[in-house]
Design a binder for these strands. Structure first.
Lengths: 168, 168
DNA sequence: TTAAACTTTCAGAAATTATTGAAAGTTTAA
DNA sequence: TTAAACTTTCAATAATTTCTGAAAGTTTAA
């Protein structure tokens, strides 16, 4: 198999995986492409390799930068910008988890707090059930945050990684 | 605040949260509704409370059943079916993680294995980089699986939960 | 300056995904 | 049986999301 073919399979698959995780296909594909190159690529190179419009590439590369998965790089004597992926898998995972935590866990927490604070009127048993749901969910959100922190620790600590494997 | 209002806020918020995780809004809303009731609701009750068509309710309830988040219940002397949510937050999380593992992690693993097995032709350094990406990703997938298993353990073991919190 | 090289924006188009609702299917009670 | 009560299916439609590409904006070199 030609390297190009393998890369292309990887890009396609990553794109469809992204879709099912609520990440746009283009963004996931661009990410896969950049991951597969040790060095940075220019917007035009990305456009060509993934067959996307300039606007799309621009938007999604910017989004990848927001997620801290890609950074801009300038090359001496070159006018254009190059984009390089963060290549360390653990840092990638950590950045994605942190971003999702910020974007999704925090809104949930806000909602739960708001609802928990409200004095509810209505059927007593239903209220009790509803409030216990709210408090269970709040606990769960905290636990997810603990797990994210744990993951960060694991990434920086090989001993910890072995410990996890051992107790799992 | 009326209980109904709180419930409705919860349902709306859960719906939009679902969207950003690649779960259809209706499915997430129905799930939220069922979570908020201790007992089961009939298709008609769901249709009314979440304002969805019969077909949509039918499809998404079935999907929730596939995810093992909801089960059918029959009431003696009643012709229709009632749907009850799994109410234990930890079991919910576990079922979701297992389902996503099955649906998404496994296809990734298959792709990685396929690519790892292929003998690639092309620029040596690029191939090396690509292959090291593949192997990093494979390690990462395994680690995610370990983490899922760990979570299962945590759920069934309060001591473990405290341990996690302590080392996090 | 200015003009070429490059990046950004965003309205409209396209693609994808979700939803409806009516018709077909199934089950049950009488 | 049959007919009412209920569930399922799926083609058509709607809603949402993503993508395009041309125009506007910015930067740099000369």
């Amino acid at each position: 198999m030609k390297l190009e073919e393998g890369r292309s399979k990887f890009i396609q698959a990553w794109g469809s995986l992204g879709s099912s995780w609520g990440i746009s296909k283009s963004m996931a594909q661009i990410h896969a492409l950049l991951l597969s190159y040790p060095e940075g690529l220019s917007a035009d190179q990305i456009m060509e390799q993934v067959q996307l419009s300039r606007g799309n590439v621009n938007t999604n590369v910017r989004e990848l930068i927001n997620w801290r998965l890609v950074r801009k790089e300038t090359v001496l004597g070159e006018r254009k910008e190059f984009f390089v992926a963060l290549h360390d898998v653990h840092s990638i995972a950590q950045n994605i988890m942190e971003e999702r935590k910020r974007r999704e866990l925090e809104p949930v927490r806000r909602l739960l707090n708001e609802l928990k604070a409200a004095k509810l009127e209505g059927n007593k048993e239903e209220i009790e059930h509803f409030q216990s749901l709210l408090s269970d969910l709040a606990d769960f959100v905290s636990q997810m945050e603990n797990l994210t922190n744990l993951m960060t620790k694991i990434n920086n600590n090989n001993y910890m990684k072995k410990l996890i494997k051992a107790i799992s």
